[in-house]
Design a protein around this nucleic acid. Structure first.
Length: 587
RNA sequence: GCCCCGGUAGCUCAGUGGAUAGAGCGGCCGCCUCCUAAGCGGCAGGUCGUCGGUUCGACUCCGGCCCGGGGCGCCA
């Protein structure tokens, strides 16, 4: 509907006498919904915007534009108001036509074409498989899934990906942690390292390993710990200690280290996959970091380094290979291959993003925690240096989540194993409440997640408020059918002209905003806009419900009203679907 | 020190240059012989952190400052 006005304004601008716009390219039409219905349904501020550069009187310019507007029956009238707004008042037929569109399009109503013909990859969560997902990851999952859905709804071809960080030191620490728990099962008494993963979830992994392998990996504790540097509690360095312990594990276990390593990785990754699937968050690919290669095998890291070398953007210093990141907007140069010959995490990052480009994605959306913001300039620099457009990478940041129980903060913290898992949270409040509350706030706003509010069955809880609207509509239709007055869509759609009450006009205004919400929310990756919209649409419905009866004797009026609320139900369902929240038929 | 995010009603937050700054909660006052009261209506509540600038117009853009959170490794 808004795009109709935009089209009319654009046509009017094009139809103005040559020279009126000073030869400049035609500007965007600048049409928006009027906040106050006294100002019509849509307002256009183009005259004021143009007046500056043209040094013209905005109201006079507005006059010219209005005069040039193509005739259209769906516009009841236009008026020029205030400093130069052009206000559009839609004819009832315009709303009716849009309602017909809702009924005809059904599940596809609202879809846009901004991304048509283009491919986007959305990478999100990507938590290290060293333990179960916690409540922070849940926000990433809910946000990323919703953003991906929004992009898809706006015409993009979307690929959802989880980067599995299954190589590197953290995974070695996991393997060592599993092994130590395993040794306990073999009867050894061990002191757990300060930097190990001490969560309870390690024990069943060790137990399963022990069940399969028996004592095959059993080494006496004194052989394991002999000659290691002191751990932190003994005045040593916890990192040096754990690294030495890992080296010892590799030495004692030889090929068995890999078995222990994989036992941890496999179990934890499966748990994460299962958790996310249960949460309704699906991925097209779980991209293994191991697939990036080691920099010498023709894999992505190798290819990235070759590209950088080919463009002359690397140098060697103190035995390490450096990338001239500072020449590409980063604050300093970065090491890609350490003096010990190992790739850095950064090398993996740029290689992975090059790989995404090589796979043909136009838009790379990488969702990260707010603590990773330093990463953006680096990876963009890498892309630029490799000859890829840096602006193809977009990195929405998700701020932290704080759990509350009533007024009390719930303590979290990972290594100490006190954290609340995503699974715990889901079991506590349900997927729907979790999904919606996670994306209710802007992603760059800290989120206070109140467990009690999420479970409350009242207006305070936006989940129930919105779902209740959907269920109520289903209930009305059921009631009508039970009274022998089932909804007759054909009659309803033919009688839409009967809908003239203020609440009905408000309903139509809200329902028809949905395409605009998708377009805008997708553009700025802001699923919270969908939540706000849902509340507003639900509020319009609840007000309508209280103001007027739907199941009336007059068949034409009854079916028209039912057609209206069925349209509302459709849009509520479509919007909930974007967020991965269910749309119940009854509550 | 540098970088990122935030500062809007008592609380939690919308508002990506437009007209009189909004919502939910909380507070107060009302509405169920009638389609689900998990609902609706009304009232009260604001120097949009602060100082300056840009503009026809600034909560929105720019600069300074204050406050809160986070980040600045050949860690992941």
């Amino acid at each position: 509907m808004k795009n109709l006005i935009e089209k009319l304004v654009s046509d009017a601008l094009a139809a103005l006498p040559p020279g009126t716009l000073g030869g400049a390219p035609p500007p965007a039409p600048a049409v928006e919904r009027s906040r106050d219905t006294a100002h019509g349904d849509f307002a256009c501020s183009i005259a004021m915007r143009l007046a500056r550069s043209l040094r013209a009187n905005p109201r006079a310019l507005a006059q010219q534009i209005v005069a040039a507007l193509p005739k259209n029956d769906l516009i009841e009238k236009t008026e020029i108001a205030g400093p130069g707004f052009i206000n559009f008042f839609m004819a009832p037929a315009a709303w009716q036509a849009e309602l017909l569109r809702v009924h005809a399009a059904g599940r596809t109503y609202g879809r846009g074409v901004s991304g048509a013909g283009r491919r986007a990859i959305v990478e999100f969560v990507s938590a290290n498989p060293t333990g179960p997902l916690h409540v922070g990851h849940g926000r990433h999952a809910a946000y990323g899934a919703s953003v991906a859905n929004l992009l898809e709804a706006d015409g993009w071809s979307v690929h959802r990906e989880y980067y599995v960080n299954d190589a590197g030191r953290q995974m070695d620490i996991l393997a060592a942690s599993v092994w130590l728990r395993y040794l306990e099962l073999c009867g050894e008494t061990i002191r757990f390292p300060a930097n190990g993963y001490r969560g309870e979830y390690i024990r069943p992994i060790a137990a399963a390993l022990h069940g399969r392998q028996g004592d095959a990996f059993h080494k006496p504790a004194n052989a394991v710990f002999a000659g290691l540097p002191p751990d932190e509690p003994d005045g040593g360095d916890k990192d040096q200690y754990i690294d030495a312990l890992i080296a010892r594990a590799r030495e004692l276990l030889a090929a068995g280290f890999r078995t222990v390593f994989d036992a941890g990785l496999t179990k934890i990754l499966a748990d994460i996959q299962n958790d996310l699937a249960e949460f309704g968050v699906r991925f097209d690919r779980w991209y293994s970091e191991q697939d990036l290669g080691d920099g010498r095998d023709g894999g992505p890291i190798d290819r990235a380094l070759q590209r950088l070398r080919a463009h002359g953007h690397v140098f060697v210093q103190e035995g390490a290979v450096w990338f001239r990141a500072a020449a590409f907007g980063d604050e300093k140069d970065r090491v890609v291959i350490r003096a010990n010959g190992q790739k850095t995490y950064f090398a993996s990052d740029i290689a992975y993003h090059l790989d995404k480009r090589e796979r043909g994605f136009d838009l790379l959306v990488t969702i990260l925690g707010a603590d990773h913001h330093g990463y953006v300039a680096r990876v963009r620099a890498g892309l630029a240096a490799m000859g890829e457009p840096p602006e193809s990478l977009q990195v929405p940041m998700v701020q932290f989540v704080t759990l509350f129980k009533g007024g009390e903060k719930v303590a979290m913290g990972k290594r100490e194993a006190r954290f609340v898992t995503l699974r715990d949270l889901r079991n506590e409040v349900g997927n729907d409440a979790a999904r919606l509350i996670y994306v209710m706030r802007s992603n760059d706003q800290h989120l206070d997640f109140d467990l009690e509010l999420a479970k409350k069955q009242s207006n305070d809880n936006p989940v129930y408020y919105v779902q209740y609207a959907h269920a109520r509509i289903a209930s009305v239709l059921k009631q009508a059918a039970e009274r022998g007055l089932p909804f007759d869509r054909e009659s309803g759609l033919a009688s839409l002209a009967l809908l003239a009450d203020p609440q009905e006009r408000e309903m139509m205004r809200e329902i028809t905003r949905w395409p605009e919400i998708i377009q805008q929310a997708s553009e700025i990756r802001a699923p919270h806009m969908v939540v706000h919209y849902l509340r507003e649409l639900a509020a319009a419905f609840h007000a309508y419900y209280n103001a007027l009866p739907f199941i009336v004797d007059d068949g034409a009026l009854r079916n028209a009203r039912l057609a209206l609320i069925v349209a509302a139900r459709q849009v509520l369902g479509n919007a909930l679907d974007i967020l991965g929240v269910s749309a119940p038929e009854s509550m």
